[in-house]
Nucleic acid binder design. Structure first.
Lengths: 183, 183
DNA sequence: CCAAGTCGGTTGTATTTGCAACGGAAGAGA
DNA sequence: TCTCTTCCGTTGCAAATACAACCGACTTGG
């Protein structure tokens, strides 16, 4: 277990079991921010960014085996000579870059102030992603609501309003964007 | 100018002038997501992540000079031999990692559903960051409201309530967290 | 000293949202 | 078929929020 504020040099990789990332506020409340399951990685940004100070607490949620890699040393040790290390770094760069894209995309939806804005932003992105105005999304209602951080029933209600306004059509997780612009 | 959806292989660096990143939705509306000024970088995550497809439109906002670097080739060209390239990749990894941390941190605040939650989450983080319950933040009210994506006056009002509840104290951009836990 | 601008707190109101509860539809399994 | 469960749309209501407007404190420049 690592505590928030600890200085870490090692990236963690969950080999078996699972790990919870906890965040505590200044008043002593804490809650689970994420669960890392087998194959998942944690603390990679902190280590690769050279920050070192953990912004969360890492706690095993069950009998867990984790692998720790001193990435700082890997990065520093053989600056140019070793093909393996160069590949590791390149792969890590790719992982971090893709995570950046995911985070930036989600941020774009969530920063919209209304449920309608968040929903349309998300649907618009998905539509472009699939290259069609008719597409399926990988979430059910509850998951979508969590992703956009809104209430499920409020999301359902908003979807109904958009449907009766003629902006979208949907059934289950298949959506179609129509011509009316209601953004 | 690059259009959203274009395939890019090159990272852009603004040498003079400035560049706007635009996002358009499925209904034809578009708005400015970010402004990159001199020294700033764009499209780096897309290129480094190997995704290639731009999720936004890049447009010069004035007479602008930009430098384009084919990072894909830098990464691929000399897989291990060249010390310069290895350093470039390491630095890029660091940049992406730190950006990840910033994004994840902001996400944590914004996903709170109430203004109070967002504010306390932010203040709590700042407090830990500075290592004291008495600290200054780098935002004025309007900037803080924008960062947390809430209304400025609503933010002010919430701060007043927290103050009279005995949870925080503040003057200008200096804050103090008190004992009462109102999270 | 005055005028104009900026910043931030307050208030009132119309909207929006979260929340709890209910009910129908669809699917799984006995 | 019957029951149990899950998913999701709907509704009513209390609470939270955005929005617009206003005001006072401060600052800046003349």
């Amino acid at each position: 277990m690592y505590l928030a504020g600890d200085f870490v040099r090692e990236i963690g990789i969950v080999v078996s079991g699972r790990v919870h990332l906890l965040k505590g506020d200044a008043w002593g409340n804490s809650n689970i921010m994420a669960e890392i399951s087998v194959g998942g990685m944690f603390a990679e940004a902190v280590v690769c960014g050279g920050v070192g100070v953990l912004p969360f607490t890492v706690m095993a949620a069950a009998d867990t085996e984790a692998l720790f890699a001193d990435f700082q040393r890997i990065v520093a040790a053989c600056p140019a000579a070793c093909a393996f290390h160069a590949l590791l770094i390149r792969n890590m760069m790719g992982i971090l870059a893709r995570k950046n894209i995911m985070l930036a995309g989600k941020m774009e939806h969530i920063t919209k102030r209304t449920t309608r804005g968040k929903l349309l932003s998300y649907l618009s992105e998905q539509s472009k992603l699939r290259g069609s105005r008719n597409f399926e999304i990988p979430f059910n209602r509850q998951e979508l609501a969590d992703y956009l951080s809104v209430d499920r029933s409020a999301l359902s209600a908003e979807m109904s309003r958009l449907k009766s306004a003629g902006a979208i059509r949907y059934r289950k997780n298949r959506f179609e964007l129509l011509g009316k612009r209601e953004a």
